[in-house]
Amino acid sequence: MNTPTRQKFVVGNWKMHSTTLEAEQLVNGVIHGLSVNNYVTVILCPPFPYLALVRDLLKGTQIALGAQNMYPEAEGAFTGEVSPTMLLDLGREYVILGHSERRHKLGESDSFINQKVECALAAGLNAILCVGETLEQRKANQTEAILDRQLTQGLANVPPEFLSQLSIAYEPVWAIGNALHHESPQQAHDALSLTRKKLSRICGEIRAQQMTLQYGGSVKPHNAAAFLGQPGLDGVLIGGASLKADQFVAIAKAAMGAMKAEVQPS
């Protein structure tokens, strides 16, 4: 049997959605739909107001907790922000950083995202760093340059010993929630291969091969298996489909199926 070196990840990013009732129903639906497994890490990332609620609902399960953002300070006069210390206090294990919506809608720079990555990893959180190009950048053949810049600047000065707490999520901005533009599994594979090549240059071949690379570009139940079956694609960062328990569970089960296929006797 071939033992996989990297687990599959399925991350649900709820973004700015849900109420208390909806959050409770969604979490319970995911819990009831998933079975115990050792090869797929499932993470739910609700909005800040529902962190404690989701934490309590997930107690006793294998589903992990994640946050959608954080500020790069342990504490201070930063009105409206949330620190890594607060996330750890609430039982959070993961945090999404540099999501395309924060880059392009809220103006976060690579240097600011780098501060967040350093702070999150130093605090003991597992960080999911998002990278990816816009449609205009892809049409201008700038994908490689954009990935190189975001990875190089986003990981600047990060101590090597912290890299085991880091994963990368490639988000083709032009494919997220876009009915007109979809990325194929092969395109996702090519972009992630390029990402791992860039990581090899930044942090060395061994660490680059050990790092989890996720894909975040409108993955749905009907195409999840095709994406998760791509070599080098270690997981998916789910937006819209994470708001419906049956869809999210279907994607998680596709990840389990892909993992089982990898460990079957050759």
Rank of each mutant, 00 (worst) to 15 (best):
A122M: 11
L155N: 03
H17T: 07
E133I: 10
A77V: 15
Y50V: 02
L34D: 01
R6Q: 06
T134D: 00
K105S: 09
N157F: 13
V36N: 06
H99G: 09
D110P: 04
N2D: 07
G132C: 03
N13F: 08
K244G: 00
Q115C: 10
A179F: 09
L121N: 01
S193E: 13
F162A: 05
I31Y: 04
F227H: 06
Q247N: 02
F9V: 13
A145G: 05
A224Q: 01
A175K: 11
E133C: 06
T134W: 02
D234W: 14
D56N: 14
L151P: 02
T143W: 04
F112S: 03
I168C: 03
M16I: 15
L237V: 09
F248M: 00
N37I: 07
L129M: 10
R92G: 12
R201K: 04
L26V: 12
M70S: 07
L228H: 04
A254K: 00
A74W: 15
A127G: 09
T20C: 05
G235K: 11
V117G: 08
P4Q: 13
N69Y: 14
N141W: 13
I43W: 01
L53Y: 08
K244P: 00
H182C: 08
Q210G: 03
L135P: 00
N141C: 12
N141F: 14
H222G: 02
F48N: 04
T61S: 08
Q165P: 06
W14D: 08
P221D: 06
L106T: 07
G217F: 08
N223Y: 11
E75D: 11
D246S: 15
A23W: 02
L106D: 11
H182F: 12
F112W: 07
D234F: 13
